[in-house]
Design a protein around this nucleic acid. Sequence first.
RNA 1: GGGCUCGUGGUCUAGUUGGCUAUGACGUCGCCUUGACACGGCGGAGAUCUCGUGUUCGAAUCACGACGAGCCCA
Length: 878
Amino acid sequence: MRSLYFLLRENLLKMSSPQELPKHYSFQDVETRWQREWRDDEYYFIPESTRPPFIIDTPPPYPTGNFHIGNALNWCYIDFIARYRRMLGYNVMFPQGWDCHGLPTEVKVEELHKITKNDVPREEFRRLCRELTLANIEKMRHTLRRLGVSIDWSNEYVTMLPRYFQKTQLSFLEMLEKGYVYRTEHPVNFCTRCETAIAFAEVAHVPRKTSLVYFDFDGVEIATSRPELLAACVAIAVNPTDERFRYLIGKKMKVPLFAHEVPVIVDKAVDPSFGTGAVMICTFGDRQDVLWWKKYGLDLRKAINRQGKMTGISGRYADMKVDHCRREILKDMEKAGILHREEPLEQRVGTCWRCKMPIEILSERQWFIAIKHDEILDAAHQIEWIPAHMLTRMENWVSQMEWDWCISRQRIFATPIPVWFCSNCGQMILPPKGDLPIDPTIAHPKEPCPSCGSTEATGEVDVLDTWMDSSISVLNVTGWNGQGKPEIFPAQLRSQGHDIIRTWAFYTILRSVALTGMRPWDQIVINGMVLGEDGFKMSKSRGNIIDTEEIIGQYGADAFRQWAAASAATGSDIMFSWNDVIAASRFQTKFWNIIRFALPHISDGRSLDPAEVIAEVDRWLLCRLSDTVKEVNDAMQQYQFDRTLKAIREFTWTVLADQYIELAKGRLYTKGAEKESAATALRIVLDTLTRMTAPFTPHFADECYSYLRGERVHRKPWVDFVFENAEARSGGDALIGLVSELRRYKHDQGMALNAPLGQINVYTKRTLDDAGDAARALNADVRWRKELPALERELREVRFNMGVIGPQLKKRAKDFMEAIRSLPVDKLVNPPASIMVNGEKISVPENAFSPQFSYLVEGKKVDLIRIGEMFVTIPQSS
RNA sequence: GGGCUCGUGGUCUAGUUGGCUAUGACGUCGCCUUGACACGGCGGAGAUCUCGUGUUCGAAUCACGACGAGCCCA
């Protein structure tokens, strides 16, 4: 509902144009007022619309409750694009998702309620998680509203709610049918603190100090960083070229303290210079162990369980935590006299990205999705990446994937895997797709086991990786229903940060290709990370975090949005800087003052017709506006917001305010056709500028436009202004140059800028009608003259145009320039067609050089200024 | 250890295929309250474009190398 206030004001604006704006622009008032005014349904995607669709696959943030500045940057980019596309006539979908499931919320709930996940029933624990998540979502929605982003709230989705995870489960069953999903025992990354398997993408590597232990292994000295895995030792490996160990090849060796026998294998991957050159293979110490284990078909000895405790094969160490076991084993080695020494070792250890505890590689029965490298790469190449080099990151990631994607997790707050197993024969039982969503730990199969007829079944307790939820975001928003490809597919755009290319972008492409056979989007635009003012990633430990709401509170959403647009090229990381936010808010002040000045002069009429612009400098302004529009359109098409905003600011501040208005403002106080010309030019310029700023500063633009035109700017079409007039362009340049040079002159003479200059003569061959602007702007009696005065001149230097000379003369350029310099003055003014250089006749290219003179006027005490083609004489004051 | 990006006045930054006096912002200094704006106007100072080598008539831009930074990863 539009407020009464707005209706009244809009009508007032239509009936009588306002004569005055408030002296100061108050972003607080304006932003809160427009946010009340805007209706959600203005931004709805209309499925039945005939306009071309523009669907944006936006990132569903994790509902932490805090919409941080990196999120905000991303949402600004999306909103620039959404508003721009709407003005271009597209039927835009800007959905808002929430990626709810996952460990952080479970941990938070455990903290808040002082419980562990096993203290309450699963469903109760999930209820507590959902409760916390909904509260956090509400906080983040508030920040989104304050940012003024034009979200289509009718397309909001919440991954933890049945409506969404029904699709997640459906996609799981579809991929199971298509053979992508399988279940097997395989080594996986496992966090023993969180007691769940995790994917490679979730492993974070951190530097750590540990020790390298040298000990006697059945008569051979061996170095290992993980002595606690001695019970899991399955082989000893040496390099084939290593003469020291040649005698061992083919032998069996007895593991100290444990007495089981292991083979000696040879492999090129063993580094003879690390440790002693002989390495202990355990199941599993690291990824290399897994490779060797597979390659040589070694035994599997599980020494660590899911809780991070030693298993039965560890004998007297069983049930000890890994660290405890390590200390005990070292003690026992010492007692047995086989411990030689320990060396400090710097290593990078894989940790759980969430709880930061070192992960173990455990062999577990888990669910996997097959990764088909070629399929994914093909699709990735069909997408336009902005900036282009981000595709390389995807390529690198895909090509080095070794294992399939482990999608099962041993947690609670996640999408259940919709599968049962027959208690009698172990057969997998799937629910009918129409029954989804289900939780197999609560529901029972409706039919008996198809294999043995038993009615006893147990539900899968493992749940799905959260990326299984979010990687179908694009399928969800395009209306996928399990049957091939949705009607509008692929989506037009994905927007995300470069930190999740290997996860969200990768998994989405994988899933899209598997389920629809197509790439998920036409374009992907990548935003950089926001770094703190110190140049480092924002983090609690560095204390360099800046809060989105704090910036908005101090300078407003529009200033923040300008900062997001202007601070760096799309895709590169941005260092946060208060200065840039302040500069943005100053630009708004400047623009506001321009409108405040112009409005009384332009609100008598409404014409936007360039044909009514007759004064030369007014046409010059339109030429410059046309240039700006072209630059802005170019940049917007490539999502280069920094270029766009730079062009707009430069034109507004320099061309419009400092150059044009300073020159022509005197005319606006007069009456007649030439005043009307200026008024119309200003109307066109301000109308166009306001529409161009609308995607970036939506509140400010709506406010300005309501004063300028009494309309809503976001409902206007995008700008398309072309104007060219060669005469006006050069005439305007000359005039602007004249005024600016004479201002410099006044400054150099120590005069005030409005001090009278007396009678000045401007000599120019061109016909220049300045409508009296120069005289008013300079406070001088300006006389325009066609005949040049008698001038005396001295040659100062010869300037060469290397842009002309270089390409034509190449190596001869230097000698050519020497020859030209030695010509007499009259030949420099009227150059010959050709010249002899080192006995070679070289034709003189056009515009190859220009002689520079110092000019003097005989007899008269005048200052002489040359501005391009023009000469100006000014009576000397002293 | 690998990948990606980058290194430009005190600080941050533009510079698309090599070409006139290297862009802009903040800061700084001087002058100016000129009928929109002092959150302003005009002007100045301040850069051997990280270093080295090479290609070229000509390099911030291209090539190679070194050093340094940030991000992502093994």
